[in-house]
């Protein structure tokens, strides 16, 4: 990304903006939600769904549009990940994508 505003590169502004909103989430729950006796159930359900919903959108298109080696790696990782912790699944997945690409899939 290029361009600058007030002689500071735009990337720096993006990073600082990301830092501010991240801190806001870390302090915001304490400042806002702790004043309610309890969170409305539907709001709670929506908040609970946010991480899985957002992260899924970063994986699904890669599986569908990425190619054979990529789709097969993600499929195998999905099965492995149900039994193996994140780090182990990640290491196996890394080996799989190297091997499957080398095999010309």
């Amino acid at each position: 990304m290029s361009g600058a505003w007030s002689s500071v590169p735009i990337n720096i502004w993006i990073i600082l903006g990301a830092a501010i909103v991240t801190y806001a989430t870390r302090v915001g729950g304490y400042l806002v939600l702790s004043r309610f006796k309890r969170i409305p159930p539907r709001v709670d359900a929506a908040l609970n769904a946010v991480p899985a919903a957002v992260l899924t959108t970063l994986v699904a298109p890669a599986a569908v549009f990425g190619g054979g080696a990529e789709a097969l790696t993600l499929f195998l990782c999905l099965i492995i990940g149900l039994r193996v912790p994140l780090m182990g699944m990640f290491a196996i997945g890394w080996m799989l994508i190297i091997a499957l690409r080398a095999a010309g899939l």
């Binding site: 909103v21 870390r26 302090v27 939600l33």
Partner: peptide
């Protein structure tokens, strides 16, 4: 992605 932290801090 970081919105879950709202619940952590609460």
């Amino acid at each position: 992605v970081n919105f879950r932290h709202v619940l952590y801090s609460a």
